[in-house]
Design a binder for these strands. Structure first.
Lengths: 130, 130
DNA sequence: CCTTGCCTTGACGCTGACGACAAGGTTTAG
DNA sequence: CTAAACCTTGTCGTCAGCGTCAAGGCAAGG
């Protein structure tokens, strides 16, 4: 499988795959003419990467999962290093949820205050077409 | 008040103030020698900007609030345009909270699965010091 | 006069995960 | 022969909110 086919089957771009390779996440073989050649296992790897990135992981966070898959495990989650990352990310998400909830609360407060103190002494909206 | 003093009193940097000015958020006077001169009102403006940015607003989102303050209102929140932005931001935060909650749920699921299927067939941790 | 400490504009760097384009090699099909 | 459709490496652009020099002007004290 060449890079174009892998990109299509993984639902991404060739640019992305080369980017992952440059960062050590994917290791294709090379054919005689220098083309990258991927096997089926790499497809699973790429899909794992994409899934984790979609969830908000960074490339560095993804590394243990890729290594885990490559070690022959059915899932990238089952290795100690992956579990560490999962725990850390879960904690990060919890933190972020807290802060976001606080922000939401503040916005609601601001909104009620703003509506209670409505003012018309405000800048005119910029005129549309001159 | 010169830019250095304003920066210190607003808890930010001169670079930041010039950046805000370049984006039309702050309008200092100029003294004879070309120095930026700010009055007390600008301090409030800058603090408003900082507060909103801290909450996750972008510079464009902040503009209505600044204009509202500058129109003579005690708060930057009380103008219609500000209220619009507040509503929109609240909706965005709600959306983000939902997605983040979903992510959190997925992470928890992955974690429990990972722990249930622990594997030792995993890559050795990279050796520390050689 | 010289140093110190303000101020000015201008321009590049940073973070992350790519998109977009350039300039060229290869293989296949017509 | 040539066009199409792949592939290669390399480099710059993107978004946001600044940080960090660089090179120089202005004001005041010793």
């Amino acid at each position: 499988m060449l890079i174009g086919e892998l990109a299509e089957r993984a639902g991404t771009s060739t640019r992305t795959l080369r980017y992952y390779e440059a960062h050590g996440l994917v290791r294709p073989q090379r054919s005689a003419n220098g083309y990258r050649v991927y096997d089926e296992a790499e497809l699973r790897v790429v899909r794992e990467i994409r899934a984790l990135l979609d969830v908000g992981f960074g490339l560095d966070d993804v590394r243990p999962f890729v290594a885990c898959l490559r070690a022959g495990n059915a899932s990238g989650d089952v290795c100690p290093d992956s579990v560490l990352v999962l725990r850390r990310k879960l904690a990060e998400v919890d933190d972020y949820l807290d802060r976001l909830a606080a922000v939401r609360q503040q916005l609601r407060t601001q909104l009620t205050h703003a509506i209670a103190h409505r003012e018309t002494t405000c800048p005119r909206r910029r005129p549309s077409a001159p």
